[in-house]
Write a protein that binds this DNA or RNA. Structure first.
Length: 103
DNA sequence: CGTGTGACACGTA
DNA sequence: TTACGTGCCACAC
């Protein structure tokens, strides 16, 4: 277990709350948290994303992390996430984020 | 406490 | 569509 920063714990909390077939952009996660920015969220998932559905967090234009694109695409197909070619259809797959407050 | 870095966002060409 | 520049935030050194 690596030492988790408060911000990192918060980010992971939100990512775990994302329901199947739904996604959030890095910026959306930061906005739901009300703190940090997309860069910070990406950094957290890169370091501590091993225990959460990291594939449900991707870039605002729907492109999954290039280094894990194949893995992410497999997950999207398995969950039935709306795809548009090799990118996620953010217009449909974007999560409301309403359940974050119900933790 | 300054500097570099990253699974980013966005405007412009 | 890709490429480049700028702004952004947290963290390791």
């Amino acid at each position: 277990m690596r030492p988790l920063t408060p911000f990192a714990a918060d980010v992971l909390d939100v990512v775990e709350a994302i329901p199947p077939a739904r996604v959030l952009s890095y910026g959306d996660v930061a906005e739901l948290l009300g703190a940090g920015g997309p860069r910070a969220v990406g950094a957290v998932l890169s370091r501590y994303g091993g225990g959460v559905p990291w594939w449900r967090v991707l870039r605002a234009d729907g492109t999954p992390p290039p280094q894990h694109a194949a893995e992410a695409l497999a997950r999207y197909r398995a969950e039935g996430t709306p795809l548009r070619g090799d990118r996620v259809d953010m217009a449909q797959a974007r999560w409301d984020g309403g359940a974050v407050g119900t933790l």
